[in-house]
Every structure is written in C-alpha cells, then in structure tokens.
C-alpha cells in the first residue's frame, strides 16, 4: 500500500488530549458497482483500522462500504507517558498498512 498522510504530534503534554488524523489511499470498492461487462466488481474495502500505544488500544474502527474512497479518520488520544503509537489497517484482499510514530510525553 501507498503510505498514508498521517498527522500526529511528536511531542505532547501528559494527560492532554491531542488529535490523530490519517488519510489512506484506497478505492474502497463497495461491491455494488458493475464493470463495463456488467460483472459486479468485488467488494474491497479497508474493513478494520486500529490504533494502539505500546500495545494498549487507543481507538479502533470496523468499517463498511459506506466509508468514502481514500478514507479519512480523525480521533484523539491522551497519554500519560512516552510510547510508540502503531496504526494498522487491513482490507478485504488481505492488504495491510502500518505506520509507527514515537511520541514523547512531557
């Protein structure tokens, strides 16, 4: 997969919420479209997205075909200590994406 556009602050204050924004390139094929030959184009969407810091879940999403192409997600996190944020997602064909960001908390 092509790398996403990810916006996460590298330095945050302890206990203060901050925003995480991600934009992932994906057609999010709905499974409702037909091609020029009239055949249904198989569904292929990012169906699962997870964000965790040092293994502890921050936010996760189960997604359906109603999520737009090139999905955009914005959510927030609040950390007590420094850690590594891992963002992972998978699509219907087994394609996977992963990003990792070290966040230092002061």
């Amino acid at each position: 997969m092509v790398r996403p556009l990810l916006n996460v602050p590298r330095e945050v204050r302890a206990g203060v919420a901050f925003e995480v924004r991600i934009l992932i390139q994906h057609a999010m094929e709905t499974g409702f479209r037909r091609d020029a030959m009239g055949m249904v184009v198989a569904q292929d969407i990012i169906n699962r997205f997870e964000c965790a810091v040092d293994g502890e879940e921050v936010f996760s999403a189960t997604l359906h075909p109603a999520i737009s192409a090139n999905p955009y997600l914005a959510f927030s996190a609040r950390l007590g200590r420094s850690g590594t944020m891992v963002l992972r997602w998978v699509d219907d064909r087994g394609g996977e994406g992963r990003e990792e960001v070290s966040i230092s908390v002061s």
Binding site: V2, R3, P4, L5, N7, R21, L23, Q25, A69, N70, Y72
Partner: peptide, 12 residues
C-alpha cells in the same frame, strides 16, 4: 492539505 486526498497523489 491534511484533509485533501489529492495530497496522497502529490506524495507519489
């Protein structure tokens, strides 16, 4: 720019 999907293409 962080919400504009065109920037995925700009990156490429």
């Amino acid at each position: 720019d962080l919400a504009n999907p065109a920037f995925l293409w700009v990156q490429q």
